[in-house]
Design a protein around this nucleic acid. Sequence first.
DNA 1: TGCAATAGTAAGCCATTACTTACGTAAGCA
DNA 2: TGCTTACGTAAGTAATGGCTTACTATTGCA
Lengths: 112, 112
Amino acid sequence: MTNASVGAAVASAFAALADPTRRQIFERLAQRTRSVGELAAGLPVTRPAVSQHLRVLADAGLVAHERDGARRVYRIDPRGLETMRAYLDRFWDRALAAFKAAVEEPEKGERR
Amino acid sequence: MTNASVGAAVASAFAALADPTRRQIFERLAQRTRSVGELAAGLPVTRPAVSQHLRVLADAGLVAHERDGARRVYRIDPRGLETMRAYLDRFWDRALAAFKAAVEEPEKGERR
DNA sequence: TGCAATAGTAAGCCATTACTTACGTAAGCA
DNA sequence: TGCTTACGTAAGTAATGGCTTACTATTGCA
């Protein structure tokens, strides 16, 4: 995987989970696999909207699906999760170090 | 922290890092603390745009700042990172289990 | 073959948002 | 006090994106 494609993967994953409806879909698929119609029945949007959200999630590597006759059964895909976790871990140590340095110098006005 | 506010925190954090310009700002602050002007000088947007992005990142708990005279020196805040990591970890085990179950039943057409 | 069920696609609409310029505000200094 | 530096805020604009309805495609079955 190139550096640019890693960046794109991270971007699409964050953008995918930034939408509340997509997070709901993702969380429901984490409970168990579901078809598109099942997902739409439990959400305040139409089935085509769910289809479009599933495409975004799939492009981000966060969900995958298998055929079951005319149905498509969707499930969570760990690849997208791993992409995001790897990204966040890159900054974790540095964030802690920066935070520690800041608290140990409380003479400046800490904000937010 | 209530359940709803947790959801809001997760939402704002993902939305904040979904924007490519904000990710650039975040990554540069991970290298070292910087003022608003320093950040703007290295980015293809104006200084007010950087200010607005910093507010979004701050509201998501991803950055914080201290005053240094007329300057504001920004740094990474680990709280936002922790919020996101905790959210992703909730699904990690279930995603792996679902994935494993799917690979062990390869008779259905796996996609994406 | 035809019909029903399931789901993806297309086109258009409206709200959100990222950006710009212009302006207001606070700190340091001659 | 006035000037400069550094930054946030306001207002307006263009692009993005999520949603709907309408349509198309595929599968299973009588």
